[in-house]
Amino acid sequence: MMHGPVATIRAEAIARAEAAAERADTARRRADWLTHAVLILGVALFALPIWIVLMGSTHDVATVSRGEVPLLPGPYAVENYAAAWTEGSARTTRVPVSAMMLNSFVMAMLIAVGKIAISILSAYAVVFFSFPGRLLAFWAIFITLMLPVEVRIFPTFQVVSDLGLVNTYTGLILPLIASATATLLFRQFFLTIPDELVEAAKMDGAGPLRFFKDVVLPLSTTNIAALFVILFVYGWNQYLWPLLITTSADVETIVIGIVKMIGAEADTEWNRVMATTVLALLPPVAVVILMQRWFVKGLVETEK
């Protein structure tokens, strides 16, 4: 048997420790709960503008124009979306959303694919070859990082219009392709390909094009996917450049179209604007969420 007092002291110590542990547990639970609450609030706040537009797009124009700001779905969803899709805004622009969506899609795809294509080729040249002017070429590309298209927008417009490319896909897309981010990402990735792999391919008799096709391209798929998401979103969301370069409805993009749809507010068919907004943000949001894994990786790595 233990001594009485010692046993008591020990029991007290144990009880104290248990109480402290319980307090810590409670505190942790409370903190977790609080964390969830704040995050849910944040998410809700983030989603609120979208929610309002999503709900508004299912009501008739009078409800929205009266300023009722519906927070629950109404009965006009099919009608509004169908009207927007086939007709656009009846009182203002009258360009069907489907046509503008197609333009946006073509632009986003061509920008993404074009930029990836020219970047992967030039990065391959810069990393895997040694030739006079290599450094110069690299810097010529690298320096484009310094000036986003918005900064040089008017001079670029001048050049494009001199070339007669206003209101063409070519004029819309090519200037947006001239940028270094994708080239730098590929270069970064190519530098991590072990030298031995290139040597093994040389031993196996693969020339540079064969090595590119059989090894570099398959190994780059993750990077290509990541860049695709970023560039598709970038292309889809262009505003200033298309605003300048497109004056005809034939090449008008959805992002421009929405703003034009609002026009003079007295006439605005807000419910169709809302439906169009939902349609306009659906493709890039879908691409980001569906390809989230590559997208996050790509984003963080492009900016390194």
């Binding site: 072990p194 792999l197 040597e199 093994a200 040389k202 031993m203 008799g205 693969a206």
Partner: peptide
């Protein structure tokens, strides 16, 4: 590739 030789690398260099 023209030397008719084969090499085994330290880190294997498998594709």
């Amino acid at each position: 590739a023209e030397r008719d030789i084969a090499m085994v690398f330290q880190n294997y260099a498998l594709y």
